[in-house]
Design a protein around this nucleic acid. Structure first.
Lengths: 181, 181
DNA sequence: GTCTATACGCTGATAGAC
DNA sequence: GTCTATCAGCGTATAGAC
């Protein structure tokens, strides 16, 4: 309950602009009472962000370990982001800007997980190109463009809940893979 | 000097986590001295974000008023974002998350400019589809995907300055319009 | 577990001397 | 214009009664 409340507030107002009082009001207790359940406000952010980072990392591990084709792996990653967005919309939304407020050593651990994730994603993208499934695009820009869409998905999805996961996947795949033309 | 320093700090640490002392140190004066040049910290954020919003709006006005084809208009908007990113990298980076810290009435004005911009962008996208330049994608998702890439560009560009604007435009256009396949 | 009371550093901002 | 001094309020977090 505390974590969920904090996630929603961090998403709306940002970590720094959210006070323990804000969270307490959301939960329905006094601010001091929160400290019977958590160690600090910082701990809340670490919980939220690192759990998400670990899940994305686990998802990536599954995909890379699989015997799927590069293009199927790419599709699996799309599904991973869509699933994560649906299941944890608030905490996934935090990955775009709130990680800067992580204190060390959590911040380094988080950035290291993120780097590894992007490196693996890039490897799969390059394999798609080599296999001839994707055309000869600049893989770094393809990764940037793809990840931009996937990372901002929770923000967009909030205002567009009237779409099914299947349609969402189909349309995003179409935009990213087939392009607009 | 104050505005530039503030923009860089807001980008790195966020508006709330940046103190007037931080800005003063960056400028090289005492915090109190800043108030001889600005009214408040809030005013700094409003200056930065609304100037950017106004420029995007002006760019959109030029594009819509032009006699270009829908697809050429789309390309012009891509160039607008790339140019803005190159010319004002720090303040353009703020549009992703820092607008939440705008106080009223600036916040409403900002959101209203943003809405109008997205509406006009969507209109152009739909015209591209109707003209047969783009395939039958879901225009809302195409807009979301395109704008995601363009909005996160300043963040990506910071770590990838070794690319020319021309190449950047070519590659982004290729990813977005032609897709990966 | 909950609460009230409190510590105390930092914040944005002002006053006033130079 | 700059500075030093200062204020009032809010922030996180703790102590201790119940």
């Amino acid at each position: 309950m505390i974590l969920e409340t904090a996630a929603a507030l961090f998403r709306d107002k940002g970590f720094q602009a959210t006070s323990m009082k804000d969270i307490a009001v959301g939960v329905g207790v006094e601010a001091a009472s929160l400290y019977n359940h958590i160690k600090s406000k910082q701990e809340l952010l670490e919980q939220l962000l690192l759990v998400i980072a670990d899940r994305f990392t686990a998802g990536m591990t599954d995909v890379t370990a699989s015997s799927l084709s590069p293009k199927e792996k790419f599709e699996q990653l799309l599904r991973l982001h869509i699933r994560m967005t649906m299941e944890h919309p608030d905490s996934v939304a935090l990955i775009n800007s709130e990680w800067v407020h992580l204190a060390e050593p959590a911040r380094s651990r988080y950035k290291s997980l993120e780097s590894a994730y992007e490196r693996d994603f890039l490897t799969i993208l390059k394999a798609c190109i080599e296999a001839g499934d994707f055309q000869q695009v600049d893989p770094r820009i393809a990764l940037f463009s793809t990840l931009s869409t996937l990372r901002l998905l929770p923000i967009w999805y909030r205002k567009n809940k009237d779409i099914s996961p299947i349609d969402l996947e189909k349309h995003i795949m179409q935009c990213l893979v087939d392009g607009l033309r």
